[in-house]
Design a protein around this nucleic acid. Structure first.
Length: 428
RNA sequence: GCGCAGGUGGCAGAGCGGUCAAUUGCAUUAGACUGUAAAUCUAACGCCCAUGUGGCUACGGGGGUUCGAAUCCCUCCCUGCGCA
């Protein structure tokens, strides 16, 4: 039985499961949003600052992108009541600076218009920034906590905690200003931004948090979830509730059960993962195993911030439908190309004279249309040409979107497990 | 031929008596990146044993001064610029 506030708008079948895998919890479906359908499982491309970095909007339709996620905190800072230049919001030619300045949210034209993207959009609530600018920054942590012994661990320096969390919300120190964000504000901003899917305000925790703090935080996140629901005024946006609970089985179950019962159109699983019990990846899988059974079968499930190849296969297998992740876009800018064989750092000397395509048979603009070779891409990277990040991003987002399309097809054809096994076997 | 300026690790280029196996950048090598503090960051980078306040060879070649030289002097070779 589907219970949701906006069912009369979205209809009972805004999320339709077309095929369920026999052996696993994988499912293929269609998520219908006001700006079009998302065939699931699907990757969600990250466009934090209202632009997929390095990709002009007109090229997005040729990347198999179905759904893009932008960020409430960053957009609030950029376009909101405290406007500041969107320095990272896309390259200048695609995103004229003058259009960014002097606007505020009251007159904001909407994300779709701004991004020149008419497809499905979602916004994250700003909840992740409560963690990443706060505890995460103070401890040099990201989404996945490295093993302390690994070389290269903690590449990014620890810094000052810029966030103070209270029962009601979070105070951010940002550029000398203090900003306050809470559930009501986050939802008000997300309604102004106007994405098809919005996310309840939450506080992610890390494996470094003990049970006491995690529980405390969970109570807060649950209260914020209810406030988020209550704060909504638009009928044309779906809202996803977020499951937290850190690395603790009891808290994850409690959270999934509580959040799963609320009148959200969909559910997201959040948090950061680490080695408090095994490797980060295994911990994440445990979290999914604990949480998913409590989430309603008939509603979409989103895994926040996850998206390497193995992660996506495992998460689909455990019943997740959508995944957003910066890996394709960020690593593209950092020089890595993803392929069915794994990840390659195109800056390495071994590619200097390579005439091979980035990936054999790839249909992305860089491979299929521009016929860029590895050697050419390496040269662009080495000369710090902006085109390098552009081409690599086009390739990587196509690769992941295409991978999810193949996963979806394999589910529909009843051969998900075989496909997974075969694909992972060929990875380096 | 004369004058001037130079010759430093793969390259560029600091250092100008000890704290120099030598700053820095590039290149190279390895690593990291998972709801975007990130088109970024970390590390290695003469040779050897690899335990080290370790051994060796090194700042064009040779010689000298000095307790001590990449740094000062002499000489040779080479490069650039100017004048013949």
């Amino acid at each position: 039985m589907v219970i949701c506030i906006n069912c009369e708008i979205f209809g009972m079948d805004y999320f339709e499961i077309i095929k369920k895998d026999q052996e696993t919890n994988a499912r293929a479906g269609i998520l219908r949003t006001p700006h079009g359908e998302v065939r699931t499982p699907s990757y969600v491309v990250v466009g934090t600052d209202a632009a997929v970095r390095c990709v002009p909007p007109e090229e997005l339709p040729r990347t198999k992108t179905q759904l893009i996620i932008a960020n409430t905190y960053h957009l609030w800072r950029t376009f909101g009541l405290n406007p500041r230049p969107a320095e990272r919001a896309g390259s200048p030619e695609h995103f004229p600076r003058e259009n960014v300045l002097g606007k505020n949210l009251e007159t904001f034209e909407g994300l779709h218009e701004r991004m020149k993207w008419n497809g499905p959009l979602m916004t994250d609530s700003g909840g992740f920034q409560v963690f990443s600018f706060g505890f995460g920054r103070a401890h040099g942590l990201g989404k996945m906590m490295p093993r302390s012994s690994e070389s290269g661990a903690r590449s990014f320096k620890m810094g000052e905690n810029l966030v103070r969390v209270t029962e009601d919300g979070a105070y951010f120190t940002d550029g000398g200003e203090e900003l306050y964000l809470d559930a009501e504000t986050s939802i008000r901003i997300q309604e102004k931004l106007g994405a098809d899917i919005i996310v309840a305000f939450d506080e992610p925790t890390s494996p470094l948090h003990d049970h006491t703090y995690t529980k405390e935080s969970l109570v807060r996140t649950h209260a914020w979830a209810l406030k988020s629901l209550k704060a909504r005024t638009r009928k044309d946006q779906m809202m996803y509730g977020v499951v937290q609970g850190g690395a603790f089985e009891d808290l994850r179950k409690e959270s999934a059960e509580f959040i799963g019962k609320q009148a959200f159109e969909g559910f997201a699983i959040g948090g950061s993962y680490g080695e408090s019990m095994g490797a980060p990846r295994e911990q994440m899988l445990s979290v999914l195993k604990w949480s998913v059974p409590y989430l309603p079968e008939g509603k979409p499930r989103h895994l926040l911030g996850i998206g390497r190849i193995e992660d996506v296969f495992d998460a689909v297998e455990l019943g997740m439908d959508t995944f957003d992740c910066v890996i394709p876009t960020r690593e593209a800018r950092h020089g890595s190309i993803w392929s069915a064989l794994g990840r390659f750092d195109m800056r390495k000397g071994m590619f200097e004279k390579s005439d091979a395509p980035l990936e054999e048979g790839c249909g992305c603009i860089a491979c299929a249309e521009k016929k860029i070779t590895r050697g050419e891409l390496r040269k662009l990277f080495k000369s710090k040409d902006r085109e390098a990040g552009h081409l690599a991003t086009l390739h990587n987002i196509y690769f992941f979107n295409n991978l999810l399309e193949k996963i979806r097809t394999s589910i529909l054809e009843g051969r998900f497990s075989e496909f997974k096994e075969e694909f992972l076997r060929n990875l380096r």
